[in-house]
């Protein structure tokens, strides 16, 4: 079994990141935006892991654990905010929340 070249892993990570970013920018539903953010976080995590494998270091995996924790915290806060938004606005459309317009 030949190891996956680190380049490929990075390509996948970049593709995931781009997909996530597209989701963040294109979706209006805040729930989907949150999910797309998760995808982007995972893309970053994948890049860390690939880097760690490339240099045979544990740092990449440690960073991934950090990213996971971060993602969990983010989801917890994000979902709470989502609920609050839904209670207040009655919708999850991010474009409706524009009261801070300059």
């Amino acid at each position: 079994m030949t190891p996956i070249p680190p380049d490929h892993a990075l390509y996948v990570a970049a593709a995931l990141f781009a997909l996530g970013l597209t989701g963040v920018l294109a979706r209006r539903n805040l729930l989907f935006v949150l999910m797309s953010l998760e995808v982007m976080l995972n893309a970053a995590g994948l890049a860390f892991v690939a880097g760690g494998a490339r240099w045979g270091q544990a740092d990449g995996q440690i960073m991934f654990l950090l990213v996971l924790t971060l993602a969990a915290a983010e989801v917890a806060i994000g979902l709470a905010l989502l609920l609050a938004v839904h209670l207040r606005v009655g919708s999850l459309d991010g474009d409706l929340l524009s009261r801070l317009r300059g």
Partner: peptide, 13 residues
Amino acid sequence: LSATQTGRLRWYA
């Protein structure tokens, strides 16, 4: 500059 502050999340992102 205040014209750039549209209040739209996706714009900021």
